[in-house]
């Protein structure tokens, strides 16, 4: 008899493969035959002419900073998320050789209202930003300063966004190789899973709030592609779901990954139901980095997630 979990796992693996395929073929279409300059780059809001290989790049979102560093280029300016460092900790750890260069990046202020004057003074030759960071007339404004390329943002689009960035830099080839390595590592782990793979769950304690990261999130998509199962209480799509402390047991799984922000850790450990979770009792609740897992969407964040999951999760 085909049980429900096996069926879901099979379909999600198939979905993960088909999801990867169109992204690759789309990128192949975008990729010019050779790395010629000037070139036109397709992106979310149209085509942008880039006259020469960009050297001085401004990244408005962390996902783009992540993508640039993954391709070996340190931007000249980035914005910051309130309350966070200019370069999130996981990126500083992933690129120790760039430590000094990262310290030289110009702070362009909060993500909601980048300091346009400072940005213009940097004289960038490429501006990268997410559609979500665009305000009224923002694209026209940025385009007057430098060629501007817009990506979609949000977890599930990271692959597509990465390829757009790579294409704008003329480094599509490197990006494809990088993705191929990640995919083969994921494939190896996914195919090593037996017929009853362990379940995983992703919890985010932001202050006193508890949030489950669902299958539509970055980490959810990656764990699906790794053939890891979700517990019965988490068989829903969508990005995330806020849960009441009374329902903390919805977060239970064979392996529970949790991250915190603000006073989140203290408030999570204080929850009366925390010690009722099987994962906590069996010491399979693992604290993770919120920046890499939940808050940013970029290739190196994905690499961090995949490495953490494949190193940690064992059949039980």
């Amino acid at each position: 008899m085909l049980d429900r979990r096996t069926f879901l796992r099979a379909t999600s693996a198939a979905m993960a493969l088909t999801a990867a395929a169109p992204a690759l073929s789309l990128a192949t279409v975008m990729e010019p035959a050779s790395e010629q300059w000037p070139r036109r780059v397709n992106h979310l809001l149209g085509k942008t002419l880039i006259p020469h290989a960009p050297r001085r790049v401004v990244a408005i979102s962390t996902g783009q900073l992540d993508g640039l560093l993954t391709l070996g280029l340190v931007p000249v300016g980035v914005t910051r998320v309130d309350n966070h460092e200019l370069t999130p900790g996981y990126l500083q750890k992933a690129f120790p050789e760039q430590r000094e260069a990262l310290a030289q990046i110009t702070d362009l202020g909060g993500r909601g209202s980048p300091d346009i004057e400072t940005l213009a003074q940097l004289a960038p030759d490429l501006i990268l930003l997410n559609k979500t960071a665009l305000k009224f007339n923002g694209y026209q404004l940025y385009s007057r300063i430098a060629p501007t390329v817009v990506t979609r943002g949000y977890g599930a689009n990271w692959r597509h966004d990465f390829l757009i960035i790579a294409n704008a830099l003329g480094r599509a080839h490197e990006a494809h190789n990088w993705l191929a390595r990640l995919d083969s590592d994921m494939q190896r782990f996914a195919s090593s899973q037996g017929s009853r793979p362990p379940t995983v769950s992703f919890l985010f304690a932001s202050g006193p709030r508890l949030r489950l990261m669902c299958r539509g999130s970055l980490v959810g998509g990656l764990s699906d592609a790794l053939n890891l199962a979700r517990p019965h209480a988490q068989q829903f799509k969508g990005n995330s779901l806020d849960i009441s402390p009374e329902r903390l047991d919805m977060a239970d799984a064979d392996w529970l990954f949790y991250a915190d922000q603000g006073s989140g850790l203290a408030s999570l450990k204080k929850q009366p139901l925390w010690n009722y979770l099987e994962a906590v009792r069996n010491r399979r609740a693992i604290r993770i980095d919120a920046d890499a897992f939940y808050l940013n969407a970029g290739p190196s964040a994905c690499r961090h997630i995949v490495d953490t999951l494949t190193d940690t999760v064992r059949p039980i």
Binding site: N83, S206, P208, G262
Partner: peptide
């Protein structure tokens, strides 16, 4: 100081559950 803001905003809405 947005670290302070992050903690403050949860206190500022008023809650009975903690």
């Amino acid at each position: 100081d947005s670290a302070v803001f992050d903690s403050y905003r949860f206190w500022a809405v008023g809650a009975l559950n903690s």
